[in-house]
Simulated scan of single mutants.
Amino acid sequence: MNMSQNNYNEQSYALSGPSPKTDKRITPIRGDLADISLAGKLFAPHYAVPQLRICVTSATMVRAAPDHLAQGASSLSYGEEFAVLDISGDWAWGYCKHDDYLGYVPTAHLAIITEEMPKPTHIVTSVSSMIYTQPKGSATSIVQLPMGAKICITGDEEDGFLPCAQGYMPASHLSLISDMDVDPVALARRLINVPYCWGGRSGFAIDCSGLVQLCFGMNGKNLPRDSDMQEAFVGRQLDDRNQLRVGDLVFFNGHVGIMADKDNIIHANSYHMNVTIEPLSIVAQRFASEDGPAITSMKRI
């Protein structure tokens, strides 16, 4: 069933003047349908009111097309929200609530958010964690969750574990969502050796801008999804490489990393195919070309 057929807004809207330029990655419109928020701004045959859903699998790719072999555009972790505009077959089309990034997600990986559903209270801050049947390390593990996953804790700590609806999680692997102030560089260091994956943004697999977005997001700073967006819209420009310090962002053509100290950078990259820490000078040499400088900008969040 096509969800949007029951979710269309039948009100008429008038447009005047040329349509504004938009970024297709974060503007919820396609040939047949658009988010109701764009009514009167961009033309579409139909407009839909988004239906909020939550990711109920450990992590899932947000894909560029409704196909398991389609390019991964981003990813959702357990407990993150997705605004659904259309359901066709086994796929939902919509956008991630935390950054408005568009794509397709398997409907089986999403659940409708109801008023009765408890809201997540904690976030996984270790590279990954497990849910166990009992509050002890020797208990049976039920599911693995990546860094960035959100979970509702239902009671008090018991023997170093916190209870949730599915079982128990190590308290040391979690932080309160309402009190997130984790050092982004410390988080990035924890992710060293995590596999590189285009579109990834969790402790399971991650790309360069996903690393930046995840680590700074868990420090309470909401950054855009892609490196060009991060370079254009966040931070204060630095003019000299000698100004660089821990936590600064360094941008290359289509790439970004976080300074681990004044000389070394942490980045998820396809050269090593994982999250790596290495000298900035070496990375700059790798990106050097005759078309322009290796480093396109340096910014401080």
Rank of each mutant, 00 (worst) to 15 (best):
P106Y: 04
L223N: 01
M147F: 03
V234Y: 08
G40H: 02
R189V: 14
V182D: 05
K150W: 04
W91C: 03
I87C: 04
A65H: 09
P106L: 03
T107Y: 07
E290Q: 15
K41D: 11
G200S: 08
P135I: 04
S77E: 02
A83V: 10
D67F: 11
Y101F: 08
C164A: 07
L38A: 01
F204C: 11
G40S: 07
R189M: 14
V234A: 13
N274A: 13
R53D: 03
S74M: 10
T107H: 06
M1V: 09
C152Y: 08
M1F: 12
A165M: 11
I113A: 05
A108E: 15
D90P: 04
D32E: 09
G148V: 04
Q285M: 12
L15W: 06
D23S: 10
N264S: 11
G210Q: 00
M130H: 13
M61P: 00
A284D: 04
G200R: 00
M61S: 06
N242W: 15
R30D: 07
A34V: 02
G292D: 05
A149C: 03
F43C: 14
V246Y: 15
Q11G: 10
R300Q: 09
T133P: 08
C96D: 09
A186F: 12
S16A: 12
A205D: 07
L214W: 00
S19P: 12
K97A: 09
M130P: 05
E278L: 14
C208R: 01
G94R: 01
S289N: 12
P170Q: 08
E10N: 14
P20M: 08
G220Y: 08
R241D: 12
S4Q: 03
N253E: 12
Q134R: 13
G254T: 07
A260R: 06
G79H: 03
K24I: 15
N9Q: 14
D159I: 11
L52R: 13
R25K: 11
G17H: 04
W91S: 01
F204A: 09
L52D: 09
Q144D: 13
A59K: 04
N269S: 08
M117Y: 12
H68L: 15
C152T: 15
A59D: 12
L211G: 02
S227W: 01
D248S: 03
A14D: 10
R225M: 07
G235H: 04
G160V: 04
L191V: 04
K262I: 14
W93T: 01
T296S: 08
E81Q: 11
D90L: 11
G292K: 06
S270P: 04
S209M: 05
C96V: 14
I177G: 01
T107P: 05
N264T: 14
G137A: 08
I277L: 11
A34Y: 02
Q166M: 14
A39R: 02
T154L: 11
